[in-house]
Amino acid sequence: MDEATRTTTGDALTELILSMFRVNNLTLTWGDRLVAAFGLTSARWQILGAIVYADRPQPVAWLARDLGANRQNVQRIVNDLHGEGLVAFEPNPHHRRAQLVVLTDKGRQTYDAAIAAYNPRVNAMAAGLSLAEIQTAHRVMTRLRHSLEGEIDAEKHD
Rank of each mutant, 00 (worst) to 15 (best):
F21P: 03
F21L: 15
R22S: 07
R22V: 12
R22M: 10
R22L: 13
R22I: 08
V23G: 06
N25V: 11
N25W: 13
L28R: 08
T29N: 10
T29L: 15
T29W: 13
W30K: 15
W30I: 13
W30P: 15
W30R: 09
D32Q: 01
R33Q: 15
R33P: 11
L34V: 11
L34A: 15
L34W: 03
V35P: 03
A36F: 12
A36Q: 09
A36S: 12
F38Y: 15
G39L: 04
G39W: 03
L40F: 11
S42I: 05
S42Y: 09
A43V: 08
A43R: 07
R44T: 10
W45F: 14
Q46N: 14
Q46Y: 05
G49D: 01
G49C: 08
A50I: 05
I51V: 13
I51T: 05
Y53Q: 07
Y53A: 13
A54G: 02
A54Y: 04
Q58L: 11
Q58P: 02
V60G: 05
W62R: 04
W62Q: 11
L63N: 07
A64H: 02
D66T: 05
G68E: 00
A69T: 02
N70M: 00
N70L: 00
N70T: 01
R71H: 08
R71W: 08
R71Q: 08
R71A: 13
N73Q: 10
Q75G: 07
Q75V: 03
D80Q: 04
D80V: 08
L81F: 05
L81D: 01
L81K: 00
H82E: 10
G85M: 00
G85A: 02
G85Y: 01
L86M: 09
V87P: 02
V87E: 05
A88V: 06
E90R: 10
E90Y: 05
P93G: 14
R96N: 12
R96L: 07
V101A: 00
V101T: 00
L103H: 10
D105L: 01
K106E: 12
K106C: 07
K106H: 15
K106S: 12
Y111K: 00
D112K: 12
D112F: 14
A114K: 03
Y118K: 10
Y118H: 13
Y118N: 12
Y118E: 08
N119T: 14
P120E: 06
R121A: 14
R121Y: 09
N123W: 07
A124C: 00
A124T: 04
M125D: 02
A127Y: 00
G128W: 02
L129F: 15
L129D: 09
L131Q: 09
I134E: 06
I134D: 08
Q135E: 14
T136Y: 10
T136N: 12
T136R: 15
A137K: 01
H138W: 13
V140H: 06
T142P: 07
